[in-house]
Nucleic acid binder design. Structure first.
Lengths: 341, 341
DNA sequence: CTGAAAGCGCTTACAG
DNA sequence: CTGAAAGCGCTTACAG
């Protein structure tokens, strides 16, 4: 492997100058820079990241933590984040919680973030007191996407979950539905996410605004997945006196609901209407009505906000402001007025 | 930040001993190890990865390259790989090609893999001559999932794509179909994947074995995505004299086909049968017949094979063997005999 | 604009 | 089983 000394020798300068020239620092004359670049090129030189990190204190890496990379929202966010990071020359260290509390602790509380990244991006990752303490102790810049958790000084990019749920529920109410069920996230979930709490609030507020008391019998909790939606809907139907509409807290749950309803011999939307939140890639295929949220846009924006202080002037004042992106009701074939009987 | 010297001082030993004790090397007495661990614990010490990498030459990191993390297969593989890697104490550096040739070159040909990882896992990543040269020059261990490309010395985990396509087509033939269309990957694709070539071969071989000449008019190329499947099917229908069955090269394309058929007023499976390959999470929801492939299993297996020589005895003989995992025909509601007319 | 030298924080032969 | 010392390959004040 060629080292910086080899380049310095060939270019006839010191290693300090090579280092400066290669990183594009302004304190190098044009002629010198040209010679250094040519030498580096000729020797096919590539800086040693470990050495550079140790000496410079920067890793050129951002750690990204997601609950489940296999879910539409997180995969879409990660793809957008990856694009922004790599365009800026940063590497992406991926941590997938996978629903395991043990993993969460490994990632957030141990030294797994320590000196491995210049910044941390938490996507919908719930934080407990001990996590917050550990994270704060790291003293890293960070950003958050779509989480109820707050880290002091970390900007947050998200949608208004209460409003999105409110819009979905209002759509059903507007069609004439009164018995509107809700299937949502599990409070027993090891990881204690908060998104589903906001969405339930929007659901309940919309009902109350229409003069309807939320019926606990129509509110079933399960996982934020296709299977979760399926199970929740099976349970809902088991309780008897089925609802005329189901508002699922995310499109994947809505898809599980579609399956459970079909298995029960109920037609959508003739017998039961279904709406979700997300606008998953497949929702259009299924004709699923939903409240669309901009997943890639949230990823891009958060990555840019995160990178800004890292790549810009060393110490810009951090703007730890939050950004709330708009959602949009998308009506397809899974919602219709209730049957007249 | 506490450093190794602090731990050494508190434990009353040299930094060399701290280093050995913390890494669990056998050449440390039990008593000393206990003292070192206690000191490290007390000081909340965590090794500096950069320093450790520079001195030791190992990064504790594996680079994973996928075409598109948003596609079901790749997200599922990455989740499984992440789990195995992190359980073994390895970090995962994610590279998403995103369909851009420029990105591919950045990842594979430049120094982006250089000294940043101890090993590379390529998932369905097509390799050109220049890529192979660059990869070989890195002199890293690696493994491949599901790619037609071969890197000398790198084991490969995959399914038999020809056989999977053969099985899907045979299923349609068995139902009585004769006009079976195929929608598949695009040869104009910047990244030149090969999976779709194998799947087309399986399709054609199955047809020929049934005495049917493959009809180029029934073979449409597009992207390996929902939209790609949609477009290909629209094109297929535009050509007139529609097929009685569509074999899509992956479930996502099949889903796009379902949508296009529905938009064209054709019923599945009464008017047209549809089958894919994958067993995507949503295929069950859509009632899509498919040939299931074990995505997570491929990821787990490849990660273990990759890690084996890294974590085991320093120089085990590399077994660069390939593993082919079985697929399985899953018949659901999207395939049926052709109409009798 | 450039260089000599110290230092980043570990690991690894080498010696005992 | 343990330690002193060199070295991993850069970057960064500091001086000029």
């Amino acid at each position: 492997m060629t080292k910086i000394d080899d380049v310095a020798r060939l270019a006839g300068v010191s290693t300090a100058t090579v280092s400066r020239a290669l990183r594009g620092l302004p304190t190098v004359s044009a002629a010198t820079r040209r010679r250094v670049l040519a030498a580096a090129e000729q020797l096919d030189y590539a800086v040693s990241p470990s050495a550079s990190r140790l000496a410079g204190g920067r890793t050129g890496t951002v750690a990204v933590v997601v609950p489940r990379i296999t879910r539409w929202f997180f995969a879409t966010v990660v793809e957008a984040v990856e694009e922004v990071l790599h365009s800026a020359g940063y590497d992406l260290l991926l941590h997938n919680l996978g629903g395991r509390e043990q993993t969460r602790q490994r990632v957030l509380r141990t030294a797994n973030l320590h000196k491995r990244a210049d910044a941390v991006l938490l996507v919908a990752t719930p934080l407990r007191a001990a996590d917050l303490t550990a994270l704060t102790a790291l003293d890293l810049p960070g950003a958050i996407i779509s989480s109820g958790s707050v880290v002091p000084g970390w900007p947050c990019v998200r949608i208004d979950d209460v409003a999105a749920a409110h819009a979905a529920t209002r759509h059903l109410l507007g069609l004439g539905h009164r018995r509107i069920a809700h299937i949502s996230g599990d409070p027993e979930d090891e990881l204690a996410f908060t998104t589903h709490l906001d969405r339930r609030r929007g659901y309940q507020e919309a009902l109350r605004a229409a003069g309807i008391m939320p019926d606990p019998g129509l509110d079933v909790e399960s996982q934020f997945t296709i299977d979760g939606g399926h199970q929740a809907t099976v349970e809902l139907l088991r309780r008897g006196d089925p609802p005329t509409a189901v508002f699922a807290a995310c499109d994947e749950m809505a898809m599980g609901a579609l399956r459970a309803l079909r298995e029960a011999g109920l037609r959508v939307p003739q017998d039961v209407s279904v709406i979700g939140i997300d606008d998953h890639d497949l929702s259009v295929v299924l004709g699923l009505s939903t409240v669309a949220q901009p997943a890639a846009e949230q990823g891009r924006l958060a990555a840019r906000i995160l990178l800004d202080p890292l790549v810009g002037s060393p110490r810009l004042p951090r703007s730890a402001s939050s950004v709330i992106l708009p959602t949009r009701l998308v009506v397809r074939d899974s919602t219709a007025p209730p049957r007249a009987d």
